[in-house]
């Protein structure tokens, strides 16, 4: 590449945790415009906490976070969404008693605008099953459909950076394939994505670059293809440990 792509997210020296327990210990991470970057690692490595720190759900104890040149360190979550970050949270956190359409409209809440019809069309095009289920309540959807709804809800905010926390968790292989196909499509359309995944092999297959987290720090970083081929990564994260992580 002859030009330097714009940095969308820049995390520098971030420490974070809960009370006296430090979970994230000095993380440096960058995501450039149009990239799909994945953050992999075993359970308890601090991946989700880092994601929560970026969107403002957890307050960092040190370090800075910049989003499109704007300092968003310790920014309130609702402001972060307004700034252009949208999180697909672990466990989806849908509004069960509300309809698919209401869930989607809530995704557009932060934009303060009523032109959500166009966005609805876009997400229904991405996940046609949601259109069929639009007046059903979210609680009646299957696990895979719920995950699609969670992704679609985040897209309704028209994010500049989409953050996903374990989108494959607890889903059947066929559904996981569909969701990752949707992520590929979003990336092809130019969306910048930061993906936290426990299924390292799957994540690296779809990503441009990857960071491997271990006990709160970055153990390895590099191109997704190199990481897939890296002996250490294969041994530690794509081998036996991976299977163990799934069961716990």
């Amino acid at each position: 590449m002859s030009y330097e792509p714009r940095i969308v997210l820049s995390v520098e020296g971030v420490h974070a945790g809960y009370g006296h327990v430090s979970v994230v210990r000095g993380i440096d991470l960058r995501v450039a415009e149009g990239e799909l970057v994945t953050l992999i690692g075993a359970n308890g490595a601090g991946k989700s906490t880092l994601l929560k720190t970026i969107v403002g759900l957890v307050s960092p104890t040190a370090g800075t976070i910049h989003f499109l040149e704007q300092d968003i360190t310790r920014m309130r979550p609702d402001r972060a969404v307004r700034a252009g970050l949208a999180l697909v949270p672990e466990g989806r956190m849908l509004f069960g008693p509300m309809t698919v359409e209401e869930n989607l409209e809530l995704g557009a809440h932060a934009r303060d605008r009523s032109d959500s019809a166009e966005d609805l069309k876009r997400v229904f095009d991405l996940f046609p099953v949601l259109q069929e289920r639009r007046s059903q309540t979210a609680a009646t959807l299957s696990g895979g459909e719920q995950q699609m709804l969670a992704v679609a809800r985040a897209l309704m905010a028209r994010p500049r950076l989409l953050l996903l926390d374990e989108p494959s968790l607890g889903l059947a292989p066929k559904v996981i394939k569909e969701i990752f196909a949707a992520l590929d499509r979003l990336k092809a359309e130019g969306l910048t994505i930061l993906l936290v995944e426990q299924d390292a092999r799957l994540a690296l297959k779809h990503a441009d670059r990857g960071y491997v987290m271990r006990t709160g720090s970055i153990a390895l970083a590099g191109n997704a293809a190199d990481l897939l081929a890296d002996d250490d990564v294969r041994l530690i994260y794509l081998g036996a440990w991976h299977g163990e992580g799934e069961s716990s």
């Binding site: 697909v88 509300m98 809530l106 995704g107």
Partner: peptide, 19 residues
């Protein structure tokens, strides 16, 4: 709608950018 979302799931409401 935001009020009902708050009742449904606070973390979901936060993820939607509800203040």
């Amino acid at each position: 709608r935001a009020m009902r979302a708050l009742h449904g799931s606070e973390s979901g409401a936060l993820a939607c950018g509800i203040d």
